[in-house]
């Protein structure tokens, strides 16, 4: 797990850590069943408050990215997790809605959007 914190970005520390862990789970760098460092280890390593790392793990657990097994530690949940699926669904909907807005501004009708999407999907599968 890689975490780099910026003191100048203005983004709260807990949010920076949360985002970085999330994106590493989504990109597959962190895999299902991987153990995360303990709250206190992570706080010590990053030189931050234990309460900050507690907040990160609690929120990641709520959002379905990790699970806390009492007495054993925190583990990454795989892509099969229902919560994670739901999260990704919302993410997709948000991106599609942005795409529709852009299409509207550009004066494209919905069939053209469909075409573009199909084309993109074909390209992805050929990769």
């Amino acid at each position: 797990m890689k975490i780099t914190l910026s003191n100048l970005s203005g983004i709260p520390i807990y949010e920076q850590i949360k985002d970085q862990i999330k994106s590493q789970i989504l990109s597959g760098e962190l895999k299902e069943g991987d153990k995360l460092p303990s709250l206190r280890e992570l706080a010590r390593d990053l030189r931050i408050s234990v309460l900050t790392t507690t907040r990160v793990y609690t929120e990641l657990e709520k959002e379905g990215f990790i699970t806390n097994i009492q007495g054993r530690g925190c583990y990454v949940l795989g892509e099969g997790s229902e919560l994670l699926k739901e999260h990704m669904l919302r993410e997709m909907e948000r991106n599609l809605s942005d795409a529709l807005k852009a299409a509207k501004i550009a004066g494209l009708d919905i069939s053209e959007v469909h075409q573009a999407l199909d084309l993109m999907n074909e390209e992805k599968q050929n990769e």
Partner: peptide
């Protein structure tokens, strides 16, 4: 600061730390 962070690792040890050099606390204090 390293020593203090190490000291509380097991969750059984606590620290009360008075200071006016607050940059020390900005990060490490809970």
């Amino acid at each position: 600061l390293d020593t203090l962070a190490e000291f509380i690792q097991d969750g059984e040890h606590s620290v009360l730390f008075s200071t006016h050099i607050t940059s020390d606390l900005e990060k490490v204090a809970d």
